[in-house]
Simulated assay, not measured.
Amino acid sequence: MAGYVQEVSDADFESRVIENQRPCLVDFWAPWCGPCQMIGPVLDKLAQEFEGDVDIFKMNVDANSTVPQGMGVRSIPYLVTFKNGELKDTIVGAPDPQKLVDLMENLLEE
Rank of each mutant, 00 (worst) to 15 (best):
residue 31 P to D: 15
residue 27 D to W: 07
residue 37 Q to M: 11
residue 42 V to N: 02
residue 33 C to Y: 04
residue 93 G to H: 11
residue 54 V to A: 07
residue 66 T to D: 14
residue 61 V to T: 15
residue 45 K to R: 11
residue 103 L to Q: 05
residue 82 F to V: 06
residue 41 P to W: 00
residue 31 P to N: 12
residue 92 V to M: 10
residue 5 V to W: 05
residue 19 E to N: 12
residue 70 G to R: 13
residue 8 V to M: 03
residue 80 V to I: 13
residue 25 L to Q: 08
residue 89 D to E: 13
residue 83 K to W: 09
residue 85 G to C: 03
residue 67 V to Y: 03
residue 110 E to I: 11
residue 49 E to F: 00
residue 35 P to S: 04
residue 21 Q to V: 14
residue 82 F to C: 05
residue 41 P to D: 00
residue 64 N to P: 12
residue 15 S to C: 02
residue 5 V to H: 08
residue 7 E to C: 10
residue 13 F to I: 09
residue 100 L to D: 01
residue 89 D to C: 00
residue 72 G to I: 10
residue 11 A to G: 14
residue 106 N to L: 12
residue 59 M to E: 05
residue 89 D to A: 06
residue 66 T to C: 06
residue 91 I to P: 08
residue 103 L to G: 03
residue 54 V to C: 08
residue 8 V to C: 00
residue 78 Y to I: 01
residue 34 G to A: 13
residue 44 D to L: 01
residue 6 Q to P: 05
residue 41 P to I: 04
residue 96 D to N: 15
residue 61 V to E: 10
residue 67 V to L: 08
residue 34 G to I: 08
residue 101 V to D: 06
residue 47 A to E: 00
residue 108 L to K: 04
residue 48 Q to C: 02
residue 43 L to D: 00
residue 63 A to H: 12
residue 56 I to F: 03
residue 96 D to W: 07
residue 44 D to V: 01
residue 92 V to H: 10
residue 102 D to P: 02
